[in-house]
């Protein structure tokens, strides 16, 4: 018995020493590959920051410097004071739209998710299936009609013109307002779906117990369900905020005047009009400033984003 054990141990040692070499080689290759990929992934961020701190003369060199020789913060000063960019206004607009639309979107999402998760009514499942089906349709398909809708909301602008009523015309035409940036995207079927799945996991006994105690549905929702589903709600909040920070096409289409322009549009339009050589270091400084809040979100709220994202595939 003991002999067999010794034999086995010897064999094991032989095998394992051969395997060890392979294992070390394998691990080295793995780390090497991951290291190179990580550098490739992170390099654009590095290049953005490094370029933003260079003077144009240094940037133009035939052999570029990886680390700026002279740290030049003038680019940032220019970004914050530029007449082209009006960064303060862009930040204000984006934050306003982001906060307001997130707030109302959350209310609507919570109410709808609660209805789909807990309340019983006729046609609930059919309605939910219908809503999920709309998720397959590309957003561009809606944009065409929505563009008409906001130009002439419910036909009010046309009616106003026919009656010569200025008030109706104003109400009917939403172009270049904050409302047009907020209202069409308040409801997201995906967020409703996400939150409903979370609500459903909360045991039904809690709901029935609350019912027996005479707690109203609304109170139960506020006191029990929202606190329990808080991580998902935070995920939704972050994704929605990121969505307005990154939205480009719709704002460009409907509210591209200076008073209502959002940050991404401002960034793109500020540097496309420039003829000839673009001052890339300044451009990179602007990009860095716009990306900075996203980095903060990434550093502090990564966990929630990853959780929300892993169920979606939707950016914002």
């Amino acid at each position: 018995m003991a002999e067999i054990k010794v034999m086995k141990a010897k064999d094991m040692k032989k095998v394992s020493s051969r395997q060890k070499v392979g294992k070390v080689l394998g691990l080295t290759a793995t780390y090497l590959f991951l290291g190179i990929m990580a550098i490739i992934v992170i390099f654009p961020f590095y290049w953005m920051i490094s370029s933003s701190l260079k003077e144009m003369d240094e940037y133009r060199r035939a052999i570029p410097t990886l680390i700026p020789k002279v740290l030049d913060f003038a680019n940032y000063v220019e970004v914050f004071t530029s007449e082209d960019l009006l960064l303060g206004k862009l930040f204000y607009n984006t934050l306003l739209v982001g906060v307001v639309s997130t707030f109302f979107s959350l209310i609507i999402t919570v109410l709808s998710a609660f209805a789909f998760a807990r309340l019983e009514f006729k046609g609930k499942n059919a309605l939910f299936a219908l809503l999920l089906a709309t998720m397959m349709i590309p957003g561009e398909l809606f944009t065409i009609t929505n563009y008409q809708t906001i130009n002439d909301f419910l036909g009010l602008a046309t009616l106003g013109k026919a009656l010569g009523n200025q008030f109706l015309i104003t109400i009917g035409n939403w172009r270049n307002t904050y409302a047009v940036l907020i209202i069409p995207f308040l409801v997201s079927v995906f967020y409703i779906y996400l939150l409903r799945q979370n609500f459903i996991q909360i045991p039904n006994e809690l709901y029935l117990a609350a019912k027996v105690d005479g707690t109203s549905d609304f109170k139960y929702l506020c006191k029990v369900m929202i606190p329990l589903a808080l991580p998902t709600i935070i995920s939704i909040t972050i994704l929605k905020m990121m969505g307005s920070w990154n939205s480009y096409m719709w704002p460009r289409l409907v509210a591209n005047d200076e008073a209502h322009r959002l940050i991404t549009n401002g960034l793109r339009t500020a540097f496309t009009n420039a003829e000839g050589v673009t001052d890339i270091p300044v451009q990179m400084a602007a990009v860095a400033v716009v990306s900075f809040p996203l980095f903060l979100v990434f550093i502090f709220l990564r966990k929630y984003i990853m959780k929300g994202v892993s169920r979606s595939g939707i950016k914002g």
């Binding site: 990580a38 920070w245 990179m284 990009v287 984003i305």
Partner: peptide, 17 residues
């Protein structure tokens, strides 16, 4: 963490980079 970083970006802004 590093590999997740590009997710939290503005695709227009980083496109410019």
């Amino acid at each position: 963490t590093i590999f997740f970083m590009p997710y939290v970006t503005n695709s227009i802004a980083i496109g410019m980079v």
